[in-house]
Write a protein that binds this DNA or RNA. Structure first.
Length: 165
DNA sequence: CATCAAAAACTCC
DNA sequence: GGAGTTTTTGATG
């Protein structure tokens, strides 16, 4: 591995997220997990300055969303996925704070109104939760659907934005 | 490399 | 509660 992904802890009020960066941008973000209280020891000396710069933006954006505000700036994202998944994630990022969309609406937005189920799959494959607000996507009839980080966490995120299920 | 089968965070009847 | 639609992923020849 010539360019191993860089891992940095992002401290928020909700816990310690783990952000992973490639040479092109933020590539993955993980929720804090029990039993992983201590972040991966980050050798700041070996981390390129630009990544530390991105990380500042990531942490700021993360905190903003967790507080229910729309972040002013996003770090560059380097999402790995199929064309379909990228379309879905792009649509997700257009959802403003405090609003929700259904899987069906996302499906329509990308021109595949009937691919709702596939949209669900793409959301589940979303490597960057919170910044790509997969938690703001609910099922058509108001059901909460699912969430990679656990349904409880999804509910709390929505509650922070002033939404009630 | 091409093809088949199974599964998924949905939606509608 | 069951059938339908689309995409992804892993197995098979």
């Amino acid at each position: 591995m010539k360019t191993p992904p860089v891992e940095l802890p992002a401290i928020t009020d909700d816990g310690e997220f783990t952000a992973r960066y490639s040479e092109a941008g933020l590539t993955e973000l993980s929720f804090p997990e029990a039993g992983r209280a201590s972040a991966p020891a980050a050798n700041k000396g070996t981390i390129p300055g630009k990544i530390l710069d991105w990380h500042r933006l990531t942490e700021a954006a993360l905190k903003a969303i967790l507080a229910g505000h729309q972040p002013k700036k996003f770090p560059p994202l380097d999402l790995a996925g199929t064309a379909f998944q990228k379309s879905v994630w792009q649509s997700l990022r257009k959802i403003p704070v405090g609003r929700t969309k259904s899987y069906g609406e996302i499906a329509e937005a990308i021109g595949r109104p009937k691919a709702v189920r596939a949209v669900g799959g793409a959301c589940g494959a979303n490597p960057v939760p919170v910044l790509v607000p997969c938690h703001r996507v609910l099922a058509a009839n108001g059901k909460i659907g699912g969430f990679s980080g656990g349904l409880e966490r999804k509910r709390r995120l929505l509650a922070r934005e002033g939404l009630k299920i």
